[in-house]
Simulated scan of single mutants.
Amino acid sequence: MATDYDAPRKTEEELPEDSIEELKTRRNDKNSGKVDEDEVEAAESFELPGADLSHEELTVRVLPRQADEFTCASCFLVKSKTQLAETRGQEMYCVDCV
């Protein structure tokens, strides 16, 4: 919420003095409008237009390891040899993990 810092401020006399009972009822009123909703149930009922992919089949082609690639021993991502920072025995580590 934006605040106008140039606006005149209210003095102590202008601020309303609320009793503790009034404050408690206001707090209860604010919470009464909240609805408990199951996130999973809400996600299942929400559908994007044209999002029915049940008849689709996923095909993935796995390429063999290339000569200029390595798999980081820490993050397990395949990286280019230019990202190689350190080798400890047989294990190679990328610049992001060192």
Rank of each mutant, 00 (worst) to 15 (best):
Q90Y: 08
S54P: 01
E22C: 08
D38F: 04
D38A: 01
K30E: 07
T3I: 15
E17R: 15
E56K: 15
A73H: 00
G50T: 02
D52H: 04
T71N: 06
V98C: 07
S54H: 08
Q66D: 12
E39G: 03
F70V: 03
C97F: 04
T25Q: 12
L15C: 09
S45H: 05
K79R: 12
R9T: 07
A73R: 00
C94E: 03
D96L: 08
K24M: 14
D38H: 00
E13V: 05
A67Q: 07
V98E: 09
T71A: 06
E57Y: 04
D4T: 02
D52M: 03
E22A: 14
P64M: 04
A7N: 08
L15N: 13
F76C: 02
L53F: 11
D29N: 09
L63T: 04
D29R: 13
C75Y: 04
N31M: 09
M1C: 12
A2Q: 15
L77I: 12
R65E: 09
K10N: 13
E12P: 01
E86H: 15
K34V: 11
S74R: 11
E56T: 10
E91N: 12
L58A: 14
K24I: 12
V40H: 01
V40P: 04
I20K: 15
Q90H: 09
S80H: 15
K30N: 08
V60I: 12
E44P: 01
G33K: 14
T59H: 13
K81W: 08
A42K: 01
E22Y: 10
P64V: 02
D18G: 09
N31C: 05
V78D: 03
N28R: 15
M92T: 06
S74L: 12
T3S: 08
T71I: 15
E91R: 13
A42M: 03
Y5Q: 09
K79M: 04
E37L: 02
E56V: 09
D68Q: 10
K34T: 12
R27D: 08
P64S: 00
C94Q: 00
C72W: 04
Q66Y: 06
P16H: 15
T87E: 12
E47K: 11
T59F: 07
L77M: 13
V78T: 12
V60F: 05
E12D: 13
E14C: 03
D29S: 06
S74I: 10
Y93G: 02
Y5K: 11
C97A: 06
E12V: 10
E12F: 13
V62S: 02
D18N: 14
D52G: 03
S74V: 13
S54C: 05
D18V: 11
C94R: 00
E21G: 06
L23Y: 06
L58F: 13
F70W: 05
E86W: 09
D68N: 12
D29Q: 14
E69Y: 03
A73K: 01
S32C: 02
S45V: 05
M1T: 11
T59G: 02
A7F: 09
S54E: 14
H55G: 05
M92D: 06
Q83K: 15
L15S: 10
S54Y: 10
S54V: 03
G33A: 07
Y5D: 07
P64T: 02
Y93W: 02
L15K: 14
P16Y: 13
E69L: 00
C75Q: 06
D52P: 01
L53T: 02
E17F: 08
R27K: 14
E13D: 14
A43T: 00
L48Y: 07
Q90D: 14
A7V: 09
S32E: 09
V35G: 03
T3W: 11
